[in-house]
Amino acid sequence: MIRLLLTILALVLALPGAAQDGVPPAPYANVQLADPAQEAQAHALMLTLRCLKCQSQSIADSDAPMAGDMRSLVRERIAAGEDPEAIRAWLVERYGDYVSYQPRVTSLTWPLYAIPLLLLLGVAVVLRRRLRRGGDA
């Protein structure tokens, strides 16, 4: 746990404090969309995009200026009617799978989804054996 704290501290320390760049944040970095349904969509998406300047934070949870720019990009595109998954795909095209906390199923990541299925199968087998055996003994 200490490392979590230290990690977070280092992260806070590493933030290039907003005072350093003199430009006001992008229009929708810290401003919500007027339509609650759209804002909810945008927020849900932001929670699943990685802040590239930070450590283990989503862009929804970061004070880094670049995260602010990414939030604004997400909100503006949602407001323009773009599908959240299309925005994710746009970012993945530029930064690779690293930018999304929601792993796609690819030749590289299929085990992530196969292993839970295998576990499920394993669970079923174990339960059958354990519970059947004693059944009417």
Binding site: A26, M66, L73, R94, Y95
Partner: peptide
């Protein structure tokens, strides 16, 4: 690039 538009557009992260 006040809002990282180009930066995000070309996949630059810093």
């Amino acid at each position: 690039d006040d809002r990282s538009i180009v930066q995000l557009g070309i996949g630059s992260s810093g």
